[in-house]
Amino acid sequence: MYKIAKRIGDVILSFIGIILLSPFFLLIILFIKIDSKGPILFKQKRVGKNKKNFYILKFRTMKITTPKDMPTHLLENPESYITNAGKFLRKTSLDELPQVWNILIGDMSIVGPRPALWNQYDLIEERDRYGANNVLPGLTGLAQVSGRDELDIKEKAKIDGKYVSEIGLKMDLLCFLMTLISVIKKDGIIEGKKS
C-alpha cells in the first residue's frame, strides 16, 4: 500500500516542483549557455528498477571533452573538466534538478537508492544481495546521506539494502530531511580519485 502512496506522492511533488522551479531552470540554462559550449542537459545511462536501464537527466556541469560513463570521483583530474557554471551547480546540487522529470515519468522516486551507472557492475551485483535493485532509484537515498562518495561499494550496497528493508514514510522523511542538511553542509562529495 505504501508503494502506491509513495508513487502518487512522487507524481504530485515532482509536478509541483517543475512548475515552482521553472524560473530557476531558466536562470540555470542561461548560466550554462553563457559559460560553455555544449548541450544544456546531460543524459547518462543508469540502472533503474529491476535493472532496467533508463537515461538520467542532469544540468551539464562538465566540458563536452569529458570521458563518458565514468564517475567524476574516478577521473584523474576532474577539476580540468568541470565548467565554471558546473562548479557552482555541483556544490549546490542544483545540477540534479532535472531529475524531477525522471521522477514524474516513473524512472525514479524522490527517495531510493541512487541509480548506478550501467557499467558499475560491482555495485549492481552487490545490491542484488540486498534487493536494492528491485525498487525505484531515488533522487536521494540513505547511502547519500550516510557518506555519499566516501563509502566503498560493499558499504553503500549494504546501506541501500537497509533502506529497502525499512522502506516507509518514516524512512523517506528521514532521508529527505538529512539530504537538506547534507546539501547545506556539502557533505560527502569527492571530486577525483580517492588516495
Results as ranks from 00 to 15, higher is better:
Val135Met: 06
Ser93Cys: 06
Asp149Pro: 04
Leu177Ser: 14
Phe176Cys: 00
Leu26Thr: 07
Ile153Met: 12
Leu123Glu: 10
Ser182Cys: 13
Ile190Val: 15
Asp152Leu: 06
Trp118Arg: 08
Leu174Cys: 02
Ser182Asn: 12
Ile105Phe: 10
Tyr121Arg: 05
Phe42Lys: 02
Asn84Ile: 14
Lys68Cys: 04
Leu21His: 11
Val145His: 07
Asp35His: 07
Pro23Val: 14
Ser80Met: 12
Leu142Thr: 08
Leu57Gln: 00
Leu169Met: 08
Gly112Lys: 09
Gly48Pro: 00
Met178Lys: 15
Val183Phe: 09
Leu41Trp: 03
Ser146Tyr: 10
Cys175Ala: 01
Arg114Glu: 03
Ile190Arg: 08
Asp69Gln: 13
Leu21Thr: 15
Ile18Pro: 02
Trp118Ile: 06
Ser182Phe: 08
Arg129Gln: 13
Ile4Gly: 00
Ile40Leu: 10
Tyr163Ile: 00
Ala85Ser: 14
Ser109Val: 12
Leu139Lys: 12
Ala116Ser: 14
Asp149Ile: 08
Asp122Arg: 11
Asn53Glu: 15
Glu76Arg: 10
Ser22Gly: 07
Val183Gln: 00
Pro78Met: 07
Leu89Arg: 12
Pro23Cys: 02
Ser195Asp: 13
Ile110Trp: 14
Ile167Ser: 01
Asp69Trp: 09
Leu117Glu: 15
Glu191Phe: 15
Thr61Val: 08
Arg114Thr: 12
Ser36Met: 05
Thr61Leu: 06
Thr72Gln: 05
Phe88Arg: 01
Glu125Tyr: 11
Phe88Asn: 08
Ile190Met: 07
Leu169Asp: 04
Pro115Arg: 05
Tyr55Gly: 00
Thr61Asn: 06
Arg129Pro: 01
Ile159Leu: 08
Lys43Glu: 06
Ile40Phe: 11
Tyr121Gln: 09
Asn133Tyr: 06
Glu96Tyr: 13
Ile159Glu: 02
Met108Asp: 04
Ser109Pro: 03
Pro71Gln: 10
Pro113Thr: 02
Leu117Asn: 13
Ile18Gln: 07
Pro78Cys: 07
Ile40Glu: 05
Ser14Pro: 01
Asp69Lys: 04
Phe15Met: 08
Lys170Leu: 13
Gln99His: 07
Leu75Lys: 09
Leu26Trp: 11
Asp122Ser: 10
Lys194Met: 14
Phe54Ser: 07
Lys51Met: 12
Ser165Ile: 00
Lys87Pro: 00
Asp172Cys: 00
Arg127Asn: 00
Ile29His: 08
Gly141Trp: 09
Leu104Gly: 01
Lys6Val: 13
Asn50Leu: 10
Ile29Met: 08
Gly112Leu: 02
Gly17Ala: 04
Pro137Met: 03
Ala157Thr: 09
Glu150Lys: 14
Ile19His: 02
Ile40Ser: 03
Ile110Gly: 03
Glu96Gly: 01
Ala143Phe: 11
Ala143Thr: 01
Glu126Leu: 04
Asn119Lys: 14
Ala157Phe: 12
Gly9Lys: 07
Pro98Arg: 03
Thr179Asp: 04
Ser195Cys: 02
Arg129Lys: 15
Asp69Val: 06
Val47Asp: 04
Lys193Glu: 15
Leu27Phe: 15
Asp128Arg: 00
Lys194Val: 15
Gln144Thr: 01
Ile12Ser: 04
Lys185His: 08
Met178Asp: 11
Gly161Pro: 01
Asp152Pro: 03
Arg114Asn: 03
Ile124Ala: 07
Leu177Lys: 13
Gly147Glu: 13
Ile167Cys: 09
Asp128Phe: 12
Ala85Met: 03
Asn77Arg: 12
Leu151Met: 08
Leu169Lys: 02
Lys33Leu: 10
Ser36Trp: 05
Arg60Glu: 02
